[in-house]
Design a protein around this nucleic acid. Sequence first.
RNA 1: CGGGGUGUGGCACAGUUUGGUAGUGCGCUUGGUUCGGGACCAAGAGGCCGCAGGUUCGAAUCCUGUCACUCCGACCA
Length: 479
Amino acid sequence: MEQDKKMVKQITSMDENFAQWYTDICKKADLIDYSSVKGCMIIRPYGYAIWENIQRILDSKFKETGHENVYMPMFITESLLQKEKDHVAGFAPEVAWVTYGGSEKLTERLCVRPTSETLFCEHFANIIRSYRDLPKLYNQWCSVVRWEKTTRPFLRSREFLWQEGHTMHATREEAEAETLRQLDCYADFFINELGIPVIKGRKTESDKFAGAVATYAIEALMHDGKALQAGTSHYFGDGFARAFDITFTDKDNKLTYPHQTSWGVSTRVIGAIIMSHGDDNGLVLPPAVAPIQVVILPVAQHKPGVLEKAAELKDRLSKRFKVRLDDSDNSAGWKFAEYEMKGVPVRLEIGPRDIENNVCVLVTRHNREKTVVGLDGLEDAVAAKLKEVRDGIYRKALDNLNRRTYKCTSIDEIKTALSDKGDGIVRAMWCGEEECEDKVKELTGVGSRCIPFDSEKISDKCVCCGRPAKHMVCWGVAY
RNA sequence: CGGGGUGUGGCACAGUUUGGUAGUGCGCUUGGUUCGGGACCAAGAGGCCGCAGGUUCGAAUCCUGUCACUCCGACCA
């Protein structure tokens, strides 16, 4: 069928080489360009516009729950970074250091922030005195640097953009509730706005954030069956508070350590969108974050009245949607392919034939379905189509997750499932010992992703050692 | 950090084996015809062949080194 034909020859097909397909999309959809510094990418206007939309939605969610934005410095003195020993041990191998200021060697070298817990702690120590100062609900939008060895656009770059929330609370219960609330905030955003199903869960001890008491994450399954940690939320207890000497006087006039959280999502979200929804014709963007929600393509635009009608529709639709009218003199076919590559959710075609009949053609990106709709009430038809795209891509992604979820009770079952059906999420029981966690990875290739909240009892025994099981774990190959 | 691949107009590549005038396609510019799935004709512009050394009368091509990108593994958002 014509519809199945691959229109965009420049993109490597997913089945042929998934990694190449991914980088092709990043480049060909104008999301990024490489720079002369390894691992540092240029986020181009179209890619940055997606990030701005992500920021806008999340930022307003954060503010609805009382969070305030701040900005912390980019540099951390070495002695400050050293204060919490688990934290420094976790991050030291991948930090970049500034050793010179101008031509003078610094007496103490400065680390370029890989994350800002230490900076927030230093500041919290100065501003928290009484229980009346709590909670402190802070967030910052910034970039951080981690000196990665292997880099990939959006998924792992040396500098990346993110948001990091840092909060301080009077009680453990309050801080734990905050940790889970923000995890839910991310999960809702992924499911409802991005149409990406996620697994919510807790990380195992070995996979925890450096310095955390508990780390929670949302994991998403990509098209190739690999899992992507898409957002994290940490509960720190009072460990950092003790290391940084942050205390407050509680209602009973007792000096107390506050309880802390941090949580973040990064531009990796864009990688998740690409690998959850994209296809061999390019990007497929969730309407909520698409820089262009509707592209209007006039057909036979030199014929009298066509451009005028197209401009009129643009004015009408712009009141409710993000609209672009492409009246360049590229051929209609070229434009179809171009906006498909860029993942624009809804395309509107308007030509002389349509104008005669007072209709236009709407095409949804994810399934290329064409519908002829009347120009009266067009706004509602477009809104319905955008909803259809969100629901359609969510269903597809959920199907992928369900199809690639395997319940297993033995190492052999895991191996068989993975080799028969490909990479995916293995649900299997675990005794809680790190030794078994490592062994499963060694024997089958899948590591523990998380202990999911929607746990089920698959058997009584650990999939590895056969001793009584403590948890059900989701295992997978990670990005 | 290990293993592979690639660096040649903006992009994709050929040319390297066997050293001898820098090529093709796409894109770009100008003009014209087109336009419901990546249109066509004509005329143009654009390159110290990643970088640094070396061999040679002569190097994109051979040698040494180096850097970057990319893919596959180990570590990480």
